[in-house]
Write a protein that binds this DNA or RNA. Structure first.
Lengths: 231, 231
DNA sequence: GGCTCGCTTTTGTCTATACAAATAGATATA
DNA sequence: TATATCTATTTGTATAGACAAAAGCGAGCC
């Protein structure tokens, strides 16, 4: 019963498995549904369940707010607002965000320091119609990411990770060499289909990385009487 | 009922919710368990369920085998083995992998081409005691990642994403400028606590990025009679 | 005070049952 | 032959009930 079915192979139907493992169909269903959610198997009504043909490597990355992450890791965090300006979205910005040109936005630029060293530059656009309170907030005490998390709920986020070379301004702020590799996280956040905020956070490549773990078979199909040990 | 509970706030107990929403406790339990798995709420026996205090941004990234990803996207993929050598793990390699020095490993270096253009350099270490078949495989027709996926199951993977500057050798192979920013994916894969393979895949920064979406409230606590529309 | 013991609350999980939804395949019909 | 309809199969999901496991709480005891 050590789950050695081959990719593409059909799994016995729920009723048979319930019979075989002496448990109810609900229990089998829950286990198989969990496997399906993790992409281990594919299920179709009437057709049955099949072992997923290709093992996709999937990883879950916790991408936290910089200040929170630093505090959790026992480091000191500070930030400085370098720019704070209300503008109207120009055409290129509107295309980038998928919003209409002319919408009022708050553009922020913010330097993050961890233990006194520059750790990231945050370039952010906040849609003022989605977050009207931002108009009167100066972000002096609470960094923008944290403030936004507390203020506005969001229903969808998209993350992109890129490597870029530091342009002169970035290099100067991050106290690194011009042209050095930087890791940029781009995040766009929506609520009800409308952009809340768009942000590019650029870290010096020699002081930052993203990490994520993945266990594909955390909970396994198992005979409920003889659960095998964690390996 | 539009889930507007505040962070830290206690959620009514399952029985009350079942009562309130006119459904069984199992249904409530399933919904809350799903929320807990997504990190939206924290649950403790006897104490109750609480709205998670900090909203962690979590994203799921599908990190696929290069050749598979290219084929799925309709591009042509090719690869060339640049180096293939059996060695014994030296001390630094052993520390990197968390394995014992002296273990026999297969070291590979492989260039990936997508639509004829260099897209990645793969530097891989395969533990030969975990994958003895690799000793006689030349990886000429099937790229190493794909071959390994077919050959060996894995129980855990760890991913790290870094930005690095291209060293001269990398720049030459990727047909980019020396010092240009590159995106490196490091992946270590285990089975039963033993390393199967360790790989560094370096992409040119101007031709590659990682992306991931996340919807925190995909399935929501809901009155089963008045389910709200997708937004 | 500090300790153990048992009670209670709350979540975790399994069961048996029921019905809904999707759909592959068979059958009937034009 | 092609199309529509029916039927059987399989998964999806809800329900009520039962008991287990964790953990807070207080009573009683030293």
């Amino acid at each position: 019963m050590n789950g050695d079915w081959k990719p593409g192979q059909r799994i016995p139907i729920e009723h048979e498995l319930a019979d075989q493992y002496q448990c109810s169909r609900m229990t089998v269903n829950k286990a198989l549904s969990a496997l399906a959610e993790r992409g281990m198997i594919v299920r179709r009504r009437k057709t049955g369940s099949f072992v997923a043909s290709q093992q996709i490597d999937r990883t879950v990355m916790d991408i936290q707010d910089i200040s929170t992450a630093a505090e959790l890791a026992g480091h000191e965090h500070d930030h400085r607002i370098l720019k704070r300006q209300i503008e109207k979205l120009d055409t290129s910005g509107a295309v980038l965000l998928g919003e209409r040109p002319g919408a009022e936005v708050l553009k922020l630029q913010c330097l993050h320091l961890v233990d006194g060293k520059p750790n990231a530059i945050e370039r952010r656009i906040i849609m003022l119609d989605a977050v009207p309170l931002a108009r009167n907030e100066n972000f002096a005490s609470v960094p923008p990411a944290k403030w936004l998390l507390e203020q506005v709920p969001w229903s969808k986020a998209r993350h992109i990770i890129r490597a870029v070379s530091a342009d002169p301004a970035t290099a100067r702020l991050l106290e690194t060499e011009r042209g050095d590799a930087c890791l940029t996280l781009i995040r766009q956040t929506w609520q009800n289909g409308r952009t809340v905020t768009y942000v590019e956070i650029t870290h010096p490549g020699d002081r930052f990385q993203f990490a994520g773990d993945f266990q594909p078979t955390e909970q396994e199909m198992s005979d409920h009487s003889s659960r095998r040990n964690a390996t």
